[in-house]
């Protein structure tokens, strides 16, 4: 077979590009520690979400000011259910400098939970629990959108993640805060 030497040079360069891309992605995963959403969250019956250990008592948590469960001093978890066209709870609040584990599932169709301007972004699939953990350093108000078409009111589906200062947290959100032991469940 005849292959021109210039084309051989280009083929080598193309391989370099491929290696560059794959190694960047591998570096992001291993070096920078960015984990993909995976199968850790497990399965759930979408008709009996509250009965699943991960979601036990989540309606009560949604009734509190912060709508999150405290795991320890700086770690919180948020159980969120997506149902066209709402997230429940729609708004959650955490203090600055906290680590938050999200458990998100759907009661009807496929949705997504995308915290705009961040890389917290996951598909939400009935029968599956999407589990992902993120660190929130600075106070900020993040908008959340459902970015997967889920029905005729899809465009109305939004939420909010408030990251508040230490002082504001102490003042407004700790009174009715539910801890992991109080809520039950096995996380």
């Amino acid at each position: 077979m005849e292959i021109h030497k210039y084309e051989k040079i280009w083929f080598a360069a193309a391989l370099v590009l491929v290696v560059l891309f794959i190694s960047s992605v591998a570096y992001g995963a291993v070096g920078a520690g960015i984990q993909m959403v995976d199968d850790e969250g497990g399965e759930i019956n979408p008709n009996e979400i509250g009965d699943h250990p991960t979601f036990e008592g989540y309606q009560d948590v949604a009734g509190t000011e912060a709508s999150v469960t405290q795991v320890n001093e700086s770690h919180y978890e948020a159980q969120i259910q997506a149902n066209h066209p709402n997230f429940f709870p729609g708004e959650i609040t955490v203090p600055e400098g906290s680590t938050v584990t999200f458990y998100i599932t759907a009661g009807d169709v496929i949705h997504s939970y995308d915290i705009v301007g961040t890389n917290v972004n996951t598909m939400v699939i009935p029968g599956q629990i999407a589990e992902l953990t993120a660190e929130f350093e600075e106070p900020n108000e993040y908008g959340v959108v459902c970015s997967e078409y889920c029905g005729e009111l899809h465009h109305e589906m939004e939420g909010m993640v408030n990251v508040v200062s230490e002082e504001e947290w102490e003042e407004n959100y700790t009174d009715d805060l539910i801890t992991i032991d109080e809520r039950g469940g096995d996380n």
């Binding site: 960047s24 992001g28 920078a32 520690g33 960015i34 984990q35 680590t99 938050v100 584990t101 915290i115 301007g117 961040t118 890389n119 917290v120 992902l132 953990t133 993120a134 660190e135 929130f136 350093e137 600075e138």
Partner: peptide, 16 residues
Amino acid sequence: VYFVEFLPRISPMVVF
């Protein structure tokens, strides 16, 4: 895009 836009800019970062 990878090392300037994506890796440093984004906080919060998905870590676990």
